[in-house]
Amino acid sequence: MIETIVLGSCVSVQGAFVARRPDGRIVVRVGDRLYEGRPVNKAA
């Protein structure tokens, strides 16, 4: 599943879902790199 996360005020990353942390952050994989951040709110 593809997820979009926010890394900072102007940086977002979209990649394959890897894990969900207990504090609500999500880990995604882009190529051979892992990124961790807050999930983007989904549209209603």
Rank of each mutant, 00 (worst) to 15 (best):
32 D>M: 10
32 D>N: 14
13 V>H: 01
5 I>C: 01
14 Q>P: 05
6 V>L: 03
15 G>S: 07
26 I>T: 00
31 G>N: 05
3 E>F: 05
39 P>R: 04
24 G>R: 07
2 I>D: 06
9 S>T: 14
6 V>Y: 02
29 R>H: 06
27 V>S: 08
25 R>E: 04
3 E>R: 15
8 G>N: 15
35 Y>K: 09
44 A>R: 12
12 S>D: 09
33 R>F: 10
34 L>K: 13
19 A>E: 11
42 K>A: 04
22 P>S: 06
21 R>D: 11
36 E>S: 08
24 G>Y: 06
10 C>K: 14
29 R>W: 05
15 G>R: 00
29 R>C: 05
3 E>N: 10
13 V>L: 09
34 L>M: 13
12 S>W: 10
22 P>D: 04
21 R>E: 12
4 T>I: 04
14 Q>M: 15
14 Q>T: 15
13 V>Q: 09
44 A>M: 11
1 M>S: 03
43 A>I: 08
43 A>N: 09
18 V>D: 00
31 G>R: 06
27 V>L: 07
7 L>P: 15
19 A>I: 01
34 L>G: 10
33 R>D: 08
10 C>E: 11
37 G>D: 02
29 R>P: 07
30 V>N: 14
11 V>Y: 11
43 A>Q: 10
2 I>G: 02
30 V>Y: 15
18 V>F: 08
42 K>C: 02
17 F>Q: 03
2 I>S: 06
21 R>Q: 14
20 R>Y: 06
9 S>V: 14
16 A>C: 10
21 R>A: 14
27 V>G: 01
24 G>A: 06
3 E>C: 10
19 A>K: 12
44 A>K: 13
6 V>Q: 05
29 R>S: 11
43 A>L: 10
40 V>Y: 03
32 D>A: 11
24 G>C: 07
35 Y>V: 05
44 A>H: 12
30 V>M: 15
26 I>G: 00
26 I>H: 00
12 S>Y: 08
32 D>C: 09
24 G>K: 08
7 L>K: 08
4 T>S: 10
24 G>Q: 10
19 A>T: 00
31 G>I: 05
13 V>D: 01
15 G>C: 06
8 G>L: 08
12 S>A: 09
3 E>W: 05
32 D>Y: 13
5 I>N: 00
5 I>Q: 00
18 V>N: 04
21 R>N: 15
42 K>S: 03
36 E>Q: 10
5 I>W: 00
26 I>R: 00
42 K>F: 01
15 G>E: 02
3 E>S: 07
17 F>C: 04
20 R>Q: 15
44 A>T: 09
4 T>R: 07
13 V>Y: 00
12 S>I: 03
13 V>N: 03
4 T>P: 03
43 A>P: 07
25 R>V: 00
